[in-house]
Amino acid sequence: MSEALVYWLQQVLNALQLGSIYALIALGYTLVYGILTMINFAHGDVFMVGAFFCFLSAVYLGLPFVPTLLLTILGTALLGVLIERLAYKPLRHAPRVSAVITALGVGLFLENFTLALAPYPKNVPALLDNVTWDLGGVSLSSLQVIIIFLSLGLMLVLDHVVHRTPVGMAMRAISWDRTFVPLMGVPVNTIISVTFAIGAGLAGAAGTMYALAYPVIDPYMGIMVGWKAFISAVVGGIGNIRGAMIGAFLLGGVEIMVTAFFPSTYRDFVAFTLLLLLILVRPYGILGQPRTQKV
């Protein structure tokens, strides 16, 4: 393979890895927005708590990768449900800004609660034997393969759940207009809880994989990653599941390409500028549609 091709393939691989993690988190923003038209600003911090659950499971319970992943998903799913029930549900009929402030407050609470318990950054032990293969100059690690395929697998499962199962049908009905959903016999609050559980569970999976790829974790790690995932969701068209995935891989790609050509300190500046320009051109995002008037 030519040197240029090897270089590009390597960058694509790196972009896929970063994009998968953004995508898993972006899905949580888009799911919750779809169903409640609310931005869950605590979501990035749920991802952070996921990384800490992974640390706790690996260090204190001594569990291997698969049980740790499952435990983390379960733990963050439960956290997501708890956050919705305790903090958001009481404000469902309050002015929208109250919900936004509450979400920011929940995020700050999670950060500082974690900070109180873990004042110093933690090292997550390697749960997987990381093998690196050399494919004609392109280096591919087993961790990369796991991150990319696990993320894609979870996204396929989610896409199936949303578009092909009764629960997904109920979620989509609620996102259209939840006023009359109870008339169908659908318990709206249960479906909202399930949505938060799925979104937070995916963030937990992302937290686990992030902690394995970048093993030093701290209570503020969710802020920047959370913003990037949120922006991915908006760029893709918030409320749209496939859009969130596209936006996330786009952002991952842009970030990797920027660092390939510019000093790495330019990365976020250039990436965010490009995405802002894209939003100016397509205000509803790549797959987003302005909602047609309902009669």
Binding site: A173, W176, F180, M184, G185, V186, K294, V295
Partner: peptide, 26 residues
């Protein structure tokens, strides 16, 4: 008791079949 609400309340993003199936939730 089934209720056909004012303004019909069909879910425009669901197919006709899905709208009919949703009502059999229970």
């Amino acid at each position: 008791i089934a209720h056909v609400p004012e303004g019909r309340g069909v879910f425009g993003n669901l197919t006709v079949h899905e709208n009919l199936r949703l009502a059999t939730w229970q």
